[in-house]
């Protein structure tokens, strides 16, 4: 095994400390028996977890968030994958302009995007807030789907499609039987990344919230502003656990390196 340099080990260790320790504090406070968000926790109990899963605004918001993340991920993949293929494989005039358009949500301030959608779609066109949120979330997910599937496509041998065509497959058939399966790891990683990005989004979800449809992060933010009970820490811990389970499953099924490298070799 290769011996890592002591400097690299130290930096990696510091990195983990900075990232993980604050999270551990949140997790620890979630198990408190007291009534305040304090560290160290006073006593040990699961009562705040019980409170979190039976607190109706949170559970309703969780369902909303999952719905929004799922549908916007599907939409972003549905638009992003064909766009990537057109940009990278097609004979598209002004490819770089199109690519720039798809990547632009990455650099636009999300609050500005949210405000623009609020003004134009919700006020001007009187669209309901769920659809407006879908549009906003899909837009900010597109850069991820285009970049991640693009990286995967760049690594795939363009001769694969030629080979399929030569063996008798129509363009459509070769797309379904060769291109798409080869891109599968890239598509899965784009989907995971999109889902998480949508689920965690605050700026757009904050501006486009309504009384009937509000995402979990916005609801939690709202709650923290008015109350200071460990219920928020408990909810955060549950989300963290969910994420760890998801990541672990993905690692077991596909392997992280493959998901985030998008390489099918």
């Amino acid at each position: 095994m290769k011996r890592s340099s002591p400097i690299a080990v130290t930096l990696a260790f510091l990195g983990y400390v900075v990232m993980i320790v604050p999270i551990l504090f949140v997790v620890a406070t979630a198990f408190t028996d007291g009534d305040a968000l304090t560290f160290p926790p006073e006593g040990l109990s699961l009562r705040w977890f019980e409170a979190a899963i039976s607190y109706e605004p949170f559970t309703r918001a969780l369902v909303s968030s999952l719905q929004l993340a799922l549908i916007s991920t599907v939409l972003a993949l549905g638009i992003g994958i064909p766009a990537t293929l057109a940009i990278m494989r097609g004979r598209l005039p002004g490819k770089s302009v199109v690519e720039g358009l798809f990547l632009s949500p990455l650099i636009l301030p999300e609050l500005v995007v949210g405000l623009a959608l609020f003004q134009q779609f919700m006020i001007h066109l009187e669209m309901d807030n769920f659809r407006t949120l879908l549009i906003g979330h899909t837009a900010i997910l597109l850069p991820y789907t285009v970049r991640v599937t693009g990286a995967s496509l760049a690594l795939a041998d363009p001769a694969l499609e030629d080979a399929a065509r030569g063996l008798g497959a129509s363009a459509w058939r070769s797309f379904w039987t060769v291109t798409l399966p080869v891109l599968r790891p890239g598509i899965i990683s784009a989907a995971l990344l999109s889902f998480v990005t949508s689920f965690n989004n605050v700026p757009i979800s904050l501006l486009l919230q309504s009384r009937d449809f509000r995402t979990l992060p916005v609801t939690m933010l709202d709650y923290v502003q008015q109350n200071y009970t460990p219920i928020v820490a408990a909810m955060s811990t549950l989300l963290l656990a969910g994420t760890v389970v998801l990541a672990f499953a993905a690692e077991r099924i596909l392997g992280f390196a493959r998901i985030f490298g998008g390489i099918n070799r």
Partner: peptide
């Protein structure tokens, strides 16, 4: 026609 590519282009999946 049958074609053999320089990269072989075998379907990896």
């Amino acid at each position: 026609l049958g074609m053999v590519f320089q990269s072989y282009a075998l379907f990896p999946h």
